[in-house]
């Protein structure tokens, strides 16, 4: 079931994303979608209630959301009974937008918080390495003992002391 949801979310997200002519428009569309989703939070119970017919929900949606593209898209989701996919679609839209903007999300883990100069330095090195612009997020974890771990999607660059010790353990086992 999960795979099917993901598949559907990708289909909807792709359709919504392709409505935009250029990257800028796609970004503003995405903001519209996010705003509409947020605006719906107070009437979420009504929207998600399957006992209430769509023609009852419709005027309510129009009143709360207005008429921009994000609102129209959400109305469509409600009509098609796919509103439960909304958050999955949001994730997919974000990744599509990242692709348009040639942007990679990278998570960096270190033992102690890094200062601004260090963050900047790391960002420069990594954007050269990945050949994209980066959206960096920083995290602290005492368990890695030292060094940093860089994670971009599945790719993991492990420069931590913990990782090196594990490597040594494996080598000694062999």
């Amino acid at each position: 079931m999960k795979a099917q949801n993901l598949y559907l979310a990708q289909k909807y997200a792709k359709a919504f994303d392709s409505c935009a002519k250029n990257t800028q428009e796609a970004a503003s569309n995405f903001l519209c979608y996010q705003k509409a989703l947020k605006g719906l939070e107070q009437i979420k119970d009504i929207i998600e209630n399957p006992a209430i017919a769509f023609n009852v929900k419709r005027p309510l949606l129009d009143k709360v959301l207005g008429q921009d593209i994000g609102a129209r898209f959400i109305s469509l989701l409600v009509e098609e009974k796919r509103f439960s996919l909304a958050s999955a679609i949001e994730r997919e839209l974000l990744s599509l937008l990242d692709k348009r903007q040639n942007l990679a999300r990278v998570e960096i883990t270190s033992v102690l918080p890094l200062d601004n100069a260090e963050q900047k330095q790391i960002g420069q090195v990594l954007s050269k390495y990945f050949k994209t612009s980066l959206n960096l997020s920083f995290k602290e974890d005492k368990n890695i003992l030292g060094g940093i771990i860089v994670k971009k999607e599945d790719l993991c660059i492990d420069g931590s002391i913990l990782g090196r010790l594990k490597n040594l353990e494996q080598a000694l086992k062999r």
Binding site: G159, G163, R164
Partner: peptide, 19 residues
């Protein structure tokens, strides 16, 4: 042997994909 292994241990950074 173990000592030698540790001394010659070349600590490289692992770059790999993980799931």
């Amino acid at each position: 042997i173990i000592k030698e292994k540790i001394e010659n241990w070349n600590a490289t950074t692992n770059i790999r994909e993980e799931g």
